[in-house]
Structures are given as structure tokens and as C-alpha cells.
């Protein structure tokens, strides 16, 4: 057979109401701010574990759960860890040899551990990574989450952290200083001719 064997027609349907051509996305920052307003006072005990072995030794979670949480934390670290254009800036914060090059080419700190808490529903919650700030920066000696929230000193094991720190997705939002730096060539080319039709830029 020279053609695709079967295709997921449900994903391809567009007028079902649930899937529309232009998806509407909720701005994560606004969500986070709302969560902070309603839930910041609630504290939970969490254990900072630095490996699956450590998780097994210091918590009541099963091996499966420790593994799943570890993988989730690694994925979350890849997505949300502080990222730097060069190794030196990263090491300034995190210390010599404490940074790696990410798959997208940025420099980011190694994950120092992740937060486990029995206060959370294992199946519904995320397990956020933390980083040790061991460089010469102003956060020296602190353990922080991806969004730069200090949880304690390096070496602290049991922490009282807000429920948000355990559950909310880490924002990696940036301050955008300009827009519209792409597209001028398309605009210039499409002004050509008198035809009213406007094709795309594929070919």
C-alpha cells in the first residue's frame, strides 16, 4: 500500500464546535495572578528530592510514582528552566559546570531536584523542578523554582511551600519590547501589480 493506512478523521474535522481554525488561548500570566490572589496563603509540606532513589527513600510514593514525577519534572525543566544566551551568564547564577545546553540551543541550569507532596492528588498535579543557585549572583545559596521563587537554602529537605508553587504551571513570560520585525518583505511583494488577489507565501 502506497498511501496512509488510516487517518484520525476526528482530529481533521473542523466544524464540530470543539475545534476551530483559530484557537483561543488563555493568557497564562492572568491565570497565575488569579491563582495567587485566591490561593497564596495555603501552605503545604513538600519534600525536595534529588533523584528517584531519594524519592523512594524519603517519601511514601511508589517507585512508579517517583519515576513519573521525575520525568514530569524533567520535561517541565526543559520547558520552563531559566534560559541564557551564553554559558557564562548561566554559570554566574548557578556556578561552574552547573549549566547545560538545551536542545533549543540555550544554556540552562541542571535540575537540582523536584518537589513531592502527599497533599496533592498524584494523578492531577504536576511536580515542579527546582534549581540550586550556587554562583556569584545575588541568589547565591538559594533553591528556586523556574519562575524565580526562592523556597529555601540549598540542602533544605522539607519545605513549607504555597500550594501554587506545587501546582501551577511555571510562567516563562517575557517582556516584549518590539513587534512587527517580520513580514515587511511579504508586504512589499504583495503590493506588486494591480490584481486584487492575494496569494500566500508558500509555493
Amino acid at each position: 500500500m502506497k498511501r496512509s493506512q488510516s487517518l484520525n478523521l476526528n482530529r481533521m474535522r473542523k466544524n464540530s464546535g470543539s475545534r476551530q481554525l483559530v484557537k483561543v488561548t488563555v493568557k497564562p500570566l492572568a491565570l497565575a495572578a488569579l491563582a495567587a490572589l485566591v490561593g497564596c496563603s495555603q501552605k503545604e509540606e513538600a519534600v525536595l528530592v534529588n533523584s528517584v532513589e531519594d524519592c523512594l527513600a524519603t517519601t511514601d510514593f511508589t517507585e512508579d510514582q517517583c519515576n513519573t514525577a521525575y520525568q514530569q519534572a524533567v520535561d517541565e525543566a526543559n520547558r520552563t528552566a531559566p534560559k541564557y544566551q551564553d554559558a557564562a551568564t548561566c554559570e554566574q547564577e548557578f556556578g561552574p559546570n552547573q549549566c547545560q545546553r538545551s536542545s533549543s540551543g540555550f544554556f540552562m541550569p541542571f535540575m537540582a531536584g523536584y518537589l513531592m507532596s502527599s497533599a496533592l492528588d498524584f494523578n492531577r498535579n504536576r511536580y515542579n523542578p527546582v534549581y540550586n543557585y550556587q554562583g556569584n549572583g545575588r541568589y547565591n545559596g538559594q533553591v528556586m523554582t523556574s519562575d524565580g521563587k526562592a523556597l529555601g537554602r540549598i540542602g533544605d529537605k522539607r519545605l513549607n511551600v504555597s500550594r501554587d508553587t506545587l501546582t501551577k504551571p511555571m510562567p516563562t513570560v517575557r517582556r516584549t519590547v518590539s513587534r512587527g520585525g517580520f513580514g515587511s518583505q511579504a508586504a512589499a511583494k504583495s503590493n506588486w501589480g494591480s490584481s486584487s488577489r492575494r496569494g500566500g507565501w508558500g509555493g
Binding site: 493568557k27 534560559k83 513570560v173 517575557r174 517582556r175 513587534r179 520585525g181 517580520f182
Partner: peptide, 19 residues
């Protein structure tokens, strides 16, 4: 394409300011 922005630390950003 026309809505892509650039952050102060030099990353491309989307309309939600996400890199």
C-alpha cells in the same frame, strides 16, 4: 508572522509574550 515580537533579552515572542 507579523505579530511576532522580540523580548528585552532578545528572544522571539508570541502575542502572549511567551518566548
Amino acid at each position: 508572522i507579523e505579530d511576532i515580537g522580540m523580548s528585552e533579552d532578545g528572544l522571539l515572542t508570541d502575542t502572549l509574550d511567551m518566548p
